[in-house]
Design a protein around this nucleic acid. Structure first.
Length: 488
RNA sequence: GGGUCGAUAGCUCAAUGGUAGAGCAGCGUCCUUUUAAGUCGUUGGUUCUGGGUUCGAAUCCCAGUCGACCCA
């Protein structure tokens, strides 16, 4: 290879390129196709029988992450899906030629080995290697071995490196998979049906958010990326799918922050012949079984406050208006004029936009002063009717809704409604909300409602935020494999 | 969008405006039960980019790129 300079010892990429070229020149395939493993690392560790050395044979494969070279023998470790396992490679076991070849392996290479299990004198179950193969040559070096990768930009852009060298990242992201998996099992055992609804929509409804726009060439029309799955899932209620859910990617064309990624994952679940009270029981069961079965504890440390969040005890229930009255110290808050509310909010140190409606001023107090302090699981019920146009009014108080917002760890985790199924009431709400922009009303959804939707409870669960909470992460980026960044 | 902070070897980090260093990794040596293995030696830099100030800039100034945090 004439394009490789003579002294390349300082350039790890060039050194590895040279090794690759040497392997090929010697007729070895550095990217071998087939190696059959018998065990993952964790399974192999369990397969060792106490007191019986070299009795069990295993074939394991993974990335070389530790090399401790002692001349004619080496202890090395490989990493696979289940973690690390130590290998003992001995010259007089594998033979001179194989040992020479093995010495050329680099940290980061992916290898497969076959051998027997034994316990070292320090008590670590280890594979005594009899055969080994290079399965994939790594041409780039791994990050440093005990500080790992800490540059946040590289952690997010090259997540594959982060999860190789940072065990806590690996564990956190694997925990997310188990959380989602638990949700599916939980709902399926309660006879909920998982469905998939369109991401490209002609009208983006079901929430108040700015959508992404894209274009379909063949049809010659613009589409929106969905901002919620709500209106599609309700159509399925009309169609007789009485218990449905979707775990789906939602897209909102808004800011990026510690709590916001432009695409995020939401569970939406709808149950016919239930209501917001039924949803309370459902989410409580879901979260307590999640804690018990996945985390193995019903107490989780809340990073921001240092408090322990207790999922096992009583869950507080409080009316939105009562919380606002208590926070403002004003029993007559909802009877005050808008000017009075604005003055009081500003006195609390909040910035109030001139164009805001009455309820928006109040809600600013809720989201800035009340919600962040709801650390223990709290159902905030009976929100003002202006806040959710898709829910039923409270029968004995037409200014509020039969809804709750479950807040935990100072975050809104799950809103739930007694779903509006009166097509005329729903149209009136849409029209009030749309104002001049009547073309944004989802007429097809209203048509579906006119066919009759069973009374139902419905709920959305922000999975990313739930994962922040349950994994103790500081940012949404830590629970999303590839968070959105500006292209580099 | 605004403010604050940051970017130096593959990685983690040092360096009063005065010769850019360390650990790990790499390269070469010794070592057949190591645990951040040890040992001896050693290579490696467009200091994010572009301007400016200065006898002299990683360092000071301006602009930009990317990121983090806070605010909107």
């Amino acid at each position: 290879m004439s394009d490789i300079p003579r002294d390349i010892s300082h350039d790890q990429h060039a050194v590895r390129r040279q090794k690759l070229a040497d392997l090929r020149a010697a007729g070895t395939d550095p990217f071998r196709a087939n190696f059959r493993t018998t065990h993952f690392s964790g399974e192999a560790l369990k397969a060792h029988v106490e007191g019986q050395e070299n009795a069990v044979t295993v074939a394991v494969a993974g990335r070389l992450v530790v090399i401790r070279d002692m001349g004619k023998s080496q202890f090395v470790k490989i990493l696979d899906q289940q973690g690390q396992i130590q290998l003992y490679v001995k010259k007089d076991v594998i033979g001179d030629d194989a040992y020479v070849a093995f010495k050329k392996f680099d940290l980061g290479d992916i290898i497969g080995v076959k051998g027997t299990l034994f316990k070292t004198k320090t008590g670590e179950v280890t594979v005594r290697v009899e055969q080994l193969l290079l399965l994939a040559k790594a041409l780039r070096p791994l990050p440093e071995k005990w500080h790992g990768l800490s540059d946040p930009e590289q952690v997010y852009r090259q997540r594959y490196l982060d999860v190789i060298v940072n065990p806590e990242s690996r564990a956190r992201l694997m925990l997310r998979s188990r959380i989602v998996s638990h949700m599916r099992r939980f709902l399926e055992t309660r006879q909920f049906i998982e469905v998939e609804t369109p991401i490209l929509e002609a009208t983006a409804g079901g929430a108040a958010a700015r959508p992404f726009v894209t274009h379909h060439n063949a049809l010659g029309v613009d589409f929106f990326l969905r901002i919620a799955t709500e209106l599609r899932l309700k159509r399925m209620l009309v169609g007789g799918f009485d218990r449905v859910f979707e775990i789906g990617r939602i897209f909102r064309n808004e800011g990026v922050s510690r709590r916001h990624n432009p695409e995020f994952t939401m569970l939406e679940v709808y149950e016919a012949y239930s209501d917001y009270r039924g949803m309370m029981a459902l989410i409580r069961d879901l979260l307590t079984t999640l804690c018990r079965d996945v985390l193995g504890t019903d107490e989780i440390k809340h990073a921001a406050s240092g408090q322990m969040i207790n999922f096992g005890g009583e869950w507080r229930e409080a009316k939105y208006k009562d919380l606002v009255r208590a926070e403002t110290g004003d029993p007559q808050w909802f009877e005050r004029s808008k000017a009075g509310k604005v003055a009081a909010a500003e006195k609390l140190g909040l910035q109030v936009h001139p164009g805001w409606e009455d309820f928006e001023v109040t809600n600013e107090i809720f989201s800035k002063r009340i919600e962040p302090n709801l650390v223990q699981p709290t159902f905030v019920t009976h929100l003002p009717r202006e806040l959710c146009p898709l829910a039923k009014l409270t029968p004995d108080d037409p200014t509020t809704l039969d809804v709750f917002e479950l807040c935990i760890g100072g975050m809104e985790i799950a809103p739930a409604y007694s779903e509006q199924n009166d097509p005329d009431a729903q149209r009136a709400m849409f029209e009030r909300q749309a104002g001049e922009e009547k073309q944004n009303i989802d007429e097809d959804f209203l048509l579906a409602l006119e066919h009759g939707m069973p009374p139902a409870g419905g709920m959305g669960v922000g999975i990313d935020r739930l994962c922040i909470l349950l994994t103790g992460a500081e940012s949404i980026r830590d629970v999303i494999l590839f968070p959105q960044l500006r292209p580099s």
